[in-house]
């Protein structure tokens, strides 16, 4: 897997791209305070940087309507202002805090123009995933010698269905690049996106049960570098449910009808695909007894 060149660079040097969920709706509704969350995350980032001199950390904020790089440990411009070091914040993160503040202000400005009502309060995960992959791609192209990259999604807000295709594309790109996407979901529900992302790319998905111990989860599970993962066991989801749900009644089904055009799934035969509008022919099953079938179907539709 690892090329000869990257072997030269010591094995456990890693590039961690952290996607930080800054969705205001989530943070205003959850039990853990954002400042507390940030404390855990900053401490974790500091720990990761401390593990190896060459470790690199990039933080991308995933907002409600935008996303942006807010920290890159390899850039030289982020050695904190004096002010932040005086109050005992990790010196490195002085600029991070400032950028995060700017980001949130901008994110808020963007939202005003938008219609909020019709959208699920999801974060722009697809955007930040793409940005992370772009960054990693740049690292890959910078030369033979580079740290081993991985992505960690710290997500709390629910999945945004309108991003489905974009997120999936990002996931498959990550799979091709052999970049694992770890995901730590701190929200109330369960994120199908992140589950799938980690499953497909060979990363770790975990949902912490005690949010006040977030730092412990982060260091125990997500601080493990890719090299160590070959001999360390990390928690795996007990099972992945591969069954699909039908689009019409949202039931989980074993057998169903699939639109041959858009692959939408239905639990019963329809005349027309409700997703893409394709008109279906008669199902083969119905051919056998067309009359009775029509009779049977009539009351339903």
């Amino acid at each position: 897997m690892a090329s000869v060149a990257s072997k030269l660079y010591s094995d456990d040097v890693s590039l961690l791209v952290l996607l930080l969920d800054t969705n205001p709706f989530f943070w205003s509704s959850t039990s853990i305070k954002f400042s507390q969350f940030l404390s855990h995350v900053f401490a974790f980032l500091n720990a990761v940087l401390g593990l190896n001199q060459l470790n690199q950390v990039v933080v991308i904020a995933t907002g409600y309507s935008s996303c942006d790089y807010i920290y890159d440990s390899s850039s030289t411009s982020n050695h904190g202002s004096l002010e932040s070091s005086r109050i005992g914040l990790p010196a490195l993160f002085g600029s991070l805090i400032e950028k995060l503040e700017d980001f949130i202000t901008k994110d808020e400005e963007l939202i005003k123009e938008e219609e909020v009502e019709d959208r699920i309060a999801s974060s722009l995960l697809s955007g930040s995933l793409s940005m992370a992959l772009c960054y990693i791609q740049r690292v890959f192209r910078s030369g033979n010698i580079h740290p081993q990259p991985r992505i960690l999604c710290l997500q709390g807000s629910p999945d945004g269905p309108e991003q489905y295709v974009a997120v999936m594309n990002s996931i498959f790109s990550a799979q091709r690049l052999m970049v694992p996407i770890d995901s730590c979901y701190i929200g109330a529900q369960n994120s199908a996106f992140l589950q799938q992302a980690s499953y497909i790319t060979g990363g770790v998905h975990h949902t912490p049960k005690q949010l006040d111990g977030l730092f412990q989860y982060l260091t125990t599970i997500f601080a493990t570098d890719l090299h160590s993962r070959s001999f360390v066991q990390l928690p795996k989801p007990v099972g992945v449910d591969f069954r699909a749900s039908c689009f019409c009644h949202k039931k989980t089904i074993d057998m169903g009808y699939i639109c041959s055009v858009c692959l939408s799934i239905f639990c019963a035969h329809h005349k027309k695909c409700s997703t893409c509008g394709s008109v279906f022919g008669q199902s083969k099953l119905d051919d056998a007894s067309p009359v009775s079938n029509k009779k049977r179907k009539a009351p339903e539709t």
Partner: peptide
């Protein structure tokens, strides 16, 4: 309100640093 809350949190961390003990 949500955004304000978020900003307040950031301000808090900016002035007080990370919470200690962390955990």
């Amino acid at each position: 309100e949500a955004y304000e809350l978020l900003k307040a949190s950031i301000l808090e961390i900016k002035t007080e640093g990370l919470c200690d003990p962390l955990i």
